[in-house]
């Protein structure tokens, strides 16, 4: 059943699939991590992936180029971030409730609009997507070459996002302020840091990153838009953040882990047609649950995550 793991070409195939499936998770996890580090719960990742996918389809369809798709995806993500920030930071609405509202709104809005904007619905689109970029020499390495060095720009973008989030959070002054705001907004405020400004910035940037995950699905994978195509990836990304203990590098590895199990289950579906595919489809989620159980009691979220800040609160 697992002999594909020992065959070089099949293994390369599974690993390649794993990386492809990880990319939306990585974008969403990095975006969500940035929000949570600043003290804002962003459980809307699922909806933001969907917004990003829809925005990408709109841009690529109307302008004929994936670059416009990317741009509009980011715009949709940023707008959902503004919504989350206004409600969850300024107006101090419960951030979980706001997140759920954004998820539901994204599902309804994108399904409806795709029927309105795309002839025959999003499913029959054939969009212009991004091509793979072969990095010379490196892409010729057996097994790893095609997996790592023959990918499209968004894959490299996701890897860059991990490095960027890590660098900003732990190597820059603004990153130190972000972490302080997430841990203790009162302390940050007293130290003269703009708590609200930083939270807005993190939420908007983070939400845009999550939307890139959706853009990736549309512009490099399926080249069309279908209803609810985020398919739970936003929630898996939330699990990856927890599993990664709010550290970008570990969260990145958690995304790869979930992507790998997703690839394995696809392979098993394909190889074992006699077993109902739902059994395998549950695998990544099962892994997520087991991984979180294994982590029991060790998770240390930013101390003030999900708690709106109110200076005059006594």
């Amino acid at each position: 059943m697992f002999d594909f793991l020992t065959d070089a070409s099949q293994l390369a195939d599974v690993l390649g699939t794993a990386l492809r499936l990880s990319i939306p998770l990585i974008f969403a996890a990095m975006g969500g991590l940035l929000c949570e580090r600043s003290g804002v719960f962003n459980i809307a990742l699922e909806g933001q992936i969907l917004f990003g996918a829809f925005g990408a389809a709109v841009g690529a369809y109307y302008f004929g180029t994936p670059y416009m798709g990317l741009l509009i995806a980011i715009a949709f993500g940023a707008l959902s971030g503004v919504l989350l920030a206004v409600l969850g930071v300024t107006l101090r609405v419960n951030q979980i409730v706001v997140g759920i509202a954004i998820i539901l709104f994204a599902a309804g809005f994108t399904s409806f609009m795709s029927r309105l904007l795309f002839p025959g619905g999003g499913n029959s689109l054939k969009l212009n997507g991004f091509e793979n970029i072969d990095i010379p020499v490196l892409s010729d390495i057996p097994v790893l070459g095609p997996v790592l060095f023959s990918q499209n720009g968004l894959v490299y973008g996701a890897l860059f996002a991990v490095i960027a989030v890590h660098f900003v959070l732990f190597r820059t002054r603004v990153g130190m302020s972000i972490r302080a705001v997430g841990e203790s907004p009162a302390a940050a405020d007293a130290a003269g840091i703009h708590v609200f400004g930083l939270r807005y910035a993190c939420v908007i940037v983070g939400s845009s990153m999550a939307a890139l995950g959706g853009a990736y699905l549309v512009l490099t994978q399926v080249l069309l838009f279908s209803d609810n195509m985020s398919a739970g990836k936003g929630f898996i990304a939330l699990a990856a953040i927890v599993l990664g203990r709010w550290q970008p590098r570990i969260a990145f590895m958690a995304c790869l882990l979930f992507g790998f199990f997703d690839a394995v289950q696809l392979r098993l579906q394909f190889d074992q047609p006699e077993i109902p595919f739902q059994v395998f489809a549950a695998l990544p989620y099962l892994v997520a649950i087991l991984a979180l159980v294994g982590l029991m009691g060790q998770a240390n979220p930013p101390a003030s995550v999900g708690r709106p800040y109110d200076r005059e609160m006594r």
Binding site: R171, T172, R173, V174, G175, M176, S177, A180, A187, A188, A191, G192, I193
Partner: peptide
């Protein structure tokens, strides 16, 4: 101690 103080971006 340095939290919130201006300075070079790269820590």
């Amino acid at each position: 101690v340095v939290l919130g103080l201006p300075g070079k971006q790269i820590l």
